[in-house]
């Protein structure tokens, strides 16, 4: 029991350290990829190929003045970024990150807590993460912030139903809510991946995932061109950085979810071992998010509502119904 607790704490610290480092590294990757897609070079001068840009940004964020606007609700203003960052990491607790492996003779399961309701827990935590932008926008006494938080509420009420319903069909097929069961269900190679059985569910999930992580086609909360910086208008320094770390950690989580649920998880893939396979898959989804950001324009909040409630939700319901019928026959 003691070993279990110590192991869990070590795993939690490792995940926290690695994912937050990756989230920081994600900003560098994003800038590079966006630059390449616009035929620019991106950050080049801090370190070789600008690799140390990350450290420079970190130093800048840490040393920047951290101010709280007068008239803001101080406690909630300080609380909001913590919510975003914390929930993003809590959501990762139920995600199996790599296949099991042996380290110094101890079998290590790279999942912090194997809940048998893993998917629901991850989705619930990521949903709770939207309280960060909401509270940030409402507490800062800034009209742009208020608009940003109003948009947060709209976005949340739009995509949440689609996420749940789109995942319902794969859950029905696998018959479990645990992500490890999902992984084991698809262990038979590339033809057993759930994407072939549930292509529509995958498309719906990835759209909802983009909305969940506030990535570009649905980047309404912080739409620079329309509402200055939305919920983050009054934030500076590390508080602002925490919003960013939360956002990138959420992107990584969505990548893991998509890879685990639809793309065979961490089963070995031909000659590629499982651990590398899932990292490749998650990297692809991360790249996809940046790729889409470079290519597509934003949409309006009313268009997001229209899309989610009038197009995606009926499609998801039809998908669930058809899956149910197919399973009965």
């Amino acid at each position: 029991m003691d070993g279990y607790i110590v192991g869990t704490i070590i795993k939690a610290i490792l995940v926290l350290a690695i994912i937050s480092a990756l989230a920081g590294f994600g900003t560098y990757i994003e800038r590079k990829i966006l630059a390449f897609m616009q035929r620019r070079l991106g950050p080049m001068h801090v370190g070789p190929y600008g690799l140390l840009q990350l450290a420079a940004d970190g130093i800048k964020l840490f040393t920047k003045e951290d101010f709280i606007p007068s008239g803001a609700n101080k406690f909630i203003f300080m609380l909001a970024p913590v919510i975003t960052a914390a929930t993003a990491f809590i959501a990762l607790a139920a995600v199996p990150l790599l296949p099991e492996f042996n380290l110094f003779g101890i079998e290590v399961r790279p999942i912090i807590s194997d809940l048998n309701i893993g998917i629901l827990f991850v989705l619930g935590m990521m949903a709770a993460g939207l309280y960060g932008p909401l509270l940030a926008g409402m507490s800062q006494r800034n009209k742009w912030g208020l608009l940003g938080s109003a948009r947060t509420a709209i976005q949340f009420l739009s995509y949440e139903v689609v996420t749940g319903l789109s995942l319902l069909a794969p859950i029905m097929i696998v018959g479990s809510l645990s992500l490890i069961d999902f992984n084991n269900y698809q262990s038979g190679g590339i033809t057993h991946w759930l994407i072939w059985q549930q292509p529509l569910a995958f498309i719906l999930f990835i759209i909802a995932g983009f909305a969940e992580t506030n990535r570009t086609p649905f980047d309404l909360l912080e739409h620079e061109a329309e509402i200055v910086a939305g919920y983050a208008t009054e934030y500076s320094g590390m508080r602002w950085g925490m919003f960013f770390i939360g956002e990138y950690a959420n992107m990584i989580t969505i990548g893991f979810l998509a890879a685990l649920i639809f793309f065979g998880g961490f089963n070995s893939w031909g000659f590629i071992p499982g651990g590398l396979a899932i990292i490749l898959k998650v990297s692809f989804f991360f790249f996809l998010m940046l790729w889409v950001r470079a290519s597509w324009p934003h949409i309006r909040p009313d268009q997001l509502m229209w899309l989610c409630w009038k197009v995606l939700m009926p499609l998801a319901v039809i998908n669930v119904t058809l899956t149910g019928l197919w399973m009965m026959i």
Binding site: I33, F36, R39, R40, W291, W296
Partner: peptide, 26 residues
């Protein structure tokens, strides 16, 4: 139609990285 946009950006990235069509002047 959306994928045409993705195709265009990927083509530009490919050209910039591997065909020396980077536009930046340092």
């Amino acid at each position: 139609e959306l994928f045409t946009g993705l195709k265009v950006t990927f083509r530009e990235m490919f050209n910039a990285l591997f065909r020396g069509e980077m536009h930046t002047t340092k």
